[in-house]
């Protein structure tokens, strides 16, 4: 990935880039600037926290399993052994 020079000037810039990588594991210059801003800004801290929680809440929704009727129909159509 090429390092682009992106100026992080204010909260709007942080909000625009906050989503690319919610964990900021990447040690790019942009991420370091974002981290620096967030560490000093209560609003961006609250915003980032709520974004992370949004994603985590979706992870808590149980995954659907294939209904046995749908599986039976598929195996029949494709003539597969169970």
């Amino acid at each position: 990935m090429t390092t682009k020079l992106i100026r992080i000037r204010n909260c709007a810039d942080v909000a625009a880039h906050i989503c690319e990588n919610l964990d900021y594991k990447l040690n790019s210059r942009k991420c370091r600037e974002i981290k620096k801003h967030i560490a000093r800004c209560a609003n961006c801290t609250a915003y980032l926290d709520s974004m992370k929680k949004t994603v985590k809440l979706y992870h808590l929704v149980p995954n659907p399993r294939v209904p046995s009727s749908a599986r039976a129909k598929l195996y029949k159509v494709l003539k597969l052994a169970k």
Binding site: N10, C11, N43, A46
Partner: peptide, 21 residues
């Protein structure tokens, strides 16, 4: 509560306007 430039108190500290979860 989001502002491009945060509100600051007289000491220059950011005043939180975006509610925490």
């Amino acid at each position: 509560g989001f502002r491009e430039e945060p509100l600051r108190d007289s000491d220059g500290r950011v005043i939180q306007t975006v509610p925490s979860w």
